[in-house]
Design a binder for these strands. Sequence first.
DNA 1: ATGAAAGCGCTAACAT
DNA 2: ATGTTAGCGCTTTCAT
Lengths: 330, 330
Amino acid sequence: MTVSRAFGGKSGVAEATQTRIREVAQRLGYRPNRVAQGLATKRTRTLGLVVSSDRSLSAVLRGAEATAREHGYSILTTLPGRRVGVERERVELLLERRVDGLLLVSTSDMEQHEHVRGLWREGIPLVTINRYCEEMGFWRLFFDYGGAARAVTRKLLAAGHRRIAFVGGAPDYHERSVRERIAGYREALRDASAWTPDAEVFGGVLPENGAALTETLLRQCPGVTAILAVKDRTAAGVLRALRRLQRRVPDDVAVIGFDDTETATCTDPPLSSVRSAHDEAGRTGCRLLIEQMEQPDREGGTLLLPSSLVVRESCGLGSGHAAEESFALG
Amino acid sequence: MTVSRAFGGKSGVAEATQTRIREVAQRLGYRPNRVAQGLATKRTRTLGLVVSSDRSLSAVLRGAEATAREHGYSILTTLPGRRVGVERERVELLLERRVDGLLLVSTSDMEQHEHVRGLWREGIPLVTINRYCEEMGFWRLFFDYGGAARAVTRKLLAAGHRRIAFVGGAPDYHERSVRERIAGYREALRDASAWTPDAEVFGGVLPENGAALTETLLRQCPGVTAILAVKDRTAAGVLRALRRLQRRVPDDVAVIGFDDTETATCTDPPLSSVRSAHDEAGRTGCRLLIEQMEQPDREGGTLLLPSSLVVRESCGLGSGHAAEESFALG
DNA sequence: ATGAAAGCGCTAACAT
DNA sequence: ATGTTAGCGCTTTCAT
């Protein structure tokens, strides 16, 4: 039918017929049926977004949808939580709906990846975000938690800090993001020969943990001039403890958190925080997925997503001219 | 084909054939094609979720997906932002994909609803959440911001507070949630003949607004013993100001915020906050939508979603036994 | 530049 | 209990 050509934007349709078709379609309230189109072409132009991580959902979805739509794709979303079995089931449902590709967003502590290998073997285009599985040929995107922690620690060193502490979590904490932040912090300090065991205090990520750990810290390491808190939540507790202990922030002690949540703008003083580019994760992940679908034989790889330090009042690193500045990290 | 019956769970298939079919399907890696099924049945078992409101995205999506899946539906998600024109376009895309129904989640300040009427007239099943349009026949769900504010104010009155203040926003603020909170607060106080103009301080919702407004408040109304802050962010500023002014919380002044964000657990002391049931909004909205699709002639109506007060240390209303308790409101 | 025929993978209705 | 036929609304291929 000529109508198909007209709507498909194919060549070989006279101007006149073109407009006449549009007109009639309009009058009839015609709406192209993408389901039928999907059946005929075996391409649904639908992507499956599987988000196990609560934290990143909004931003990733926003980024992914923006990119998807630019390319004519829509997104089927599913939130399986962190159980791999559930994830498998949900992916199966998406495949029955014939999504053209999958964007798998994991929590950093997910551990079982066999079924992802299975999907890839089946020839299903996919991209992972934050999934610590081995390299198998598809694109894997990671938030560079370690690199960001390293970079921000170096920034503090460069600013003259010598006793820089880390508060919260633990080197064997279940979330990889936490483990990597600790590792990055240590790396930067060791490189500068400034690492000491008494500047690390571990145990939980809650505000009350941060507060209690900070009291311990200042007892065992009174000369500390800067503190990295493993999450903004933890940093909130750190700030509370410092206030109780009569230390001024940032004059006596600089404090920096991670994640740049709403909390960072609400602490007293407002908290400088390391921000991961969740929206860019969605955009880039989606872009690579679409490329993968178009050129199935091109090899994927590994990509680190950028972080930035959002400087507010708590760390003494800003120019002092703005309430909020942002610096790229690593 | 008998295969269709077997997978459709229809009666009239012998046990033996049933299992044999499953077996062969398994071996062949057969996966039912829901696209073809959708074309044949004219039901895609897909719902369109249109979320203009950032705030509620995660929770609503989680709730909606859970309910959707129980009924065999998947969800196409789109985030149009608050521009109605964009919303129309996105809905159109969803309709081309032949979603069986629409769940429209709005910000409380959305204003144009004509195209929703158009959709409804077209016979498209839909349910709105937080969309202040007129009653047209479909279900409209609302967060009862006003009722929650009224209830929590009454709770403070019942606890013996007489000078209860409201901080932040304004009676003509662009977000309806803010306006309704103020109205609910006033209503409760007027009912108790306890309203005074000097206990209301308006102007912004940011932490710094909350702090500045609180200083004004305590100057013009020194006897205040309880403060409602229009958002948790605002409450964070209120707490900061009270600390500067040497008022103890909750002993001298009780403080309650709205939204129950992460921030509420991070303030000093932890903030009591009014929580709207976003997840239930998703679940209930989805359930009503599915009912609507199954019985298109049944009339919808208006439903208020419940709120609760999450009691932490800042308001002196808890039993003192737990770090966090929750009370239904209104 | 337009049309006609066949088929995408399924289900509904009607045999057998 | 199983098979057959037709058709869902589109695209693709091959005429005209």
